[in-house]
Design a protein around this nucleic acid. Structure first.
Length: 583
RNA sequence: GCACCCGUAGCUCAGUGGAUAGAGCAGUGGAUUUCUAAUCCUCUGGUCGCAGGUUCGAUCCCUGCCGGGUGCGCCA
């Protein structure tokens, strides 16, 4: 990793030059934004010049005089107000390429301090189909899990399924009174939704129905055998369907510990919190209130109302004795810490739940949790009107529907090309490109931004899309297919065209990029990087013929193709996107 | 009311305390007897919502406004 090494060398140079660095100061080295100046740059001299009361350029010169980087750089320059610009030498770059070829992680080093990280994502509800709203949590969570594992963390993925809650009163009542067994067999979730909707409508028309539903719910919660059996069947049927969806998406979980798993832990948890004074009874409910440890404007348990701060409690038990979302979440944290020894827990959940998590995290800390808990929030998917998709009442687009449409479009595109591929091959390619397109459309976006759902954007096969990246990969594979027999790539390399060096440099950045993704939990940094790799490769491909070149030049170009191939395949796999040899 | 998120090209969106703010789509004009044209190259397109402040340097940080969204005691 050039960046890390340059940072170290820079620090050493400060020491050699006798310059005392301020406490905690680490000179920053970044990939140059403008490659005219070099490959990497540092603004350390400018940052320090004021504190040290020195001219920034003179300070930069002192550092350069002490800097030992001849093994890495062919040129160091001081430009503009005092930028240090580093140009990597061909030798160092070539060595980097050979690492990418040999290393099974394509040159990405492991983290120095591996952690145990629990990642909570996807979390669909029982008896409800997955829709486009689940895209973000599912794909972002899956990608972060892949990246974290890849760089050496121990990752436990947990699908916190919504398998318990008040909706089951209605579902059970509906199951008993109007379930169509034939339809249930055909499409279980569809039938459960139909039943739920019918009962939901009935409760609005008739109070009595609502009372019946509540009774059914209480019976379920008290362990009534019949209701418990119905509930279990609903869960089983839904999970069966979910497995199919996740299978099609190539998303896996280590655990499916739904809300119901924590039922028995809830009452003791509330009792414990009452005993310790963390929670108290208020207006009949049990809730957590502010303990005054932080400023009011930062306190998740306070809210301002007409010049005064009022309590915004986090309720953990209702007046009727029932438990809530927050209660289950607290019990879940206990479990993950105790059973899984989690150093960190990541929640990939929408931004609207920010307050909820601030409260839950604060409450968990008061109970003594030292685990680092992070809410990895994402923006909403909006309908064509710019308003949020309604998950309760509103009609939204099904997740499988989107994937199927994407595969269909990819299949149509494959059909237009004359590649001599069998129908089975075309199906497989369409599947990879279709589902890859949907994933890429999501993951190439900044997670915090809301975006309008658009079929065309989600399914586009042109421009900055999965097919663009896959096509670059296919082009690398095609070259190796054309080679007669295997080719021994030697260390005999030399750059003769700018496009070759540019590609090599871009590939070297993979080592840095993969780590940057987890800095702020942003897969889009990786997606954007891979787009640049593909773009640089396509440029190289047009400028440099590989198969008709000879000697060291041909060897260099083949090496670049192989390295590109590895970086793209590895990088795409971190986004959860498979590759194909032909398209 | 308070808190959080967002405001960047016609559209959809990246981006960063640094040098001339980038892509894709749309529009324009080209490139293929040559390794997959799902490609490459041209050109067109900007008051980075507005106003102050901090800084050697601000689209980015701070403050205030304007506009859009979300959340705020017994749903999950």
């Amino acid at each position: 990793m050039f960046r890390a090494v340059l940072t170290e060398r820079l620090q050493a140079a400060f020491t050699s030059a006798g310059i005392a660095l301020p406490e905690g100061f680490v000179p920053s080295v970044v990939i140059a934004s403008d490659t005219r100046y070099g490959d990497y740059q540092s603004n350390a001299a400018m940052v320090l010049s004021k504190q040290l009361k020195q001219n920034p350029r003179a300070l930069a010169q002192q550092i350069v005089d002490q800097l030992q980087v001849t093994d890495l750089c062919e040129k160091i320059s001081i430009d503009g107000p005092g930028f240090l610009n580093f140009t990597v030498s061909p030798t160092a770059l070539i060595q980097r390429l050979s690492v990418i070829l040999k290393d099974d992680h394509a040159g990405v080093p492991p983290v120095t301090q591996p952690k145990r990280i629990v990642i909570d994502f996807s979390a669909p509800n029982i008896a409800k189909p997955m829709h486009v709203g689940h895209i973000r949590s599912t794909f972002i969570g899956d990608s972060l899990a892949r990246v974290a594992r890849f760089i050496g963390h121990t990752v436990i993925t947990d699908n916190h399924v919504g398998d318990w809650g008040t909706q089951f009163g209605m579902i059970i009542h509906g199951w008993k009174t109007q379930l169509d067994q034939a339809k249930l067999k055909l499409d279980p979730i569809q039938e459960l939704v139909t039943v739920y909707k019918a009962i939901n409508a009935a409760t609005k028309a008739d109070e009595a129905v609502l009372t019946v539903c509540k009774t059914e719910l209480v019976k379920l919660q008290q362990g009534d055998a019949e209701n418990l059996a119905i509930w279990k069947e609903c869960v089983r049927l839904t999970l069966e369907q979910l497995e199919k969806v996740y299978g099609a998406l190539d998303v896996t979980f280590d655990h499916y510990l739904g809300e119901s798993f924590y039922n028995d832990a809830l009452a003791p948890l509330v009792a414990d919190m009452l005993e310790k004074g963390i929670a108290k009874v208020s207006e009949g409910a049990t809730a957590v209130f502010s303990d005054g440890s932080v400023k009011p404007e930062n306190d998740p348990f306070l809210i301002s109302d007409k010049d005064e701060w009022k309590a915004a409690p986090c309720i953990i038990r209702k007046t009727d004795g029932g438990f809530l979302y927050a209660t289950t979440d607290l019990a879940t944290i206990d479990y993950r810490v105790k059973e899984w020894k989690a150093d960190e827990i990541w929640y990939v959940v929408g931004a609207p739940q920010q307050l909820h998590f601030r409260q839950v995290f604060a409450a968990a800390k008061r109970r003594g949790a030292t685990t680092e808990m992070t809410h990895i929030a994402f923006g909403s998917i909006l309908g064509p009107d710019g308003k949020m998709f309604k998950t309760r009442s509103g009609e939204t687009v099904g997740l499988l529907e989107v994937i199927d449409e994407a595969i269909e479009r990819a299949r149509a595109a494959a059909e237009e090309k004359e590649q001599g591929l069998s129908d089975a091959d075309k199906d497989e390619i369409a599947r990879i490109i279709g589902s890859g397109s949907v994933k890429y459309a999501e993951l190439s976006q900044n997670r915090l931004t809301d975006y309008k759902f658009s079929w065309d954007k989600m399914l586009s096969l042109q421009g900055n899309t999965a097919p663009y990246l896959l096509n670059a990969y296919v082009r690398t594979r095609s070259i190796f297919r054309k080679l007669e027999g295997s080719v021994e790539l030697t260390a005999d390399l030399e750059f003769t065209e700018p496009a070759e060096r540019a590609l090599a440099m871009k590939l070297a950045h993979f080592a840095e990029n993969a780590h940057d993704v987890l800095e702020d939990h942003r897969p889009n940094l990786l997606a954007n990087y891979l787009y640049e790799v593909a773009n640089t490769y396509h440029g190289f491909y047009e400028a440099c013929n590989v198969l008709r070149s000879e000697g060291a030049i041909r060897n260099t170009r083949l090496t670049l193709c192989e390295a590109t191939s590895r970086v793209l395949k590895t990088g795409l796999s971190l986004l959860g996107i498979q590759t194909t040899e032909r398209m």
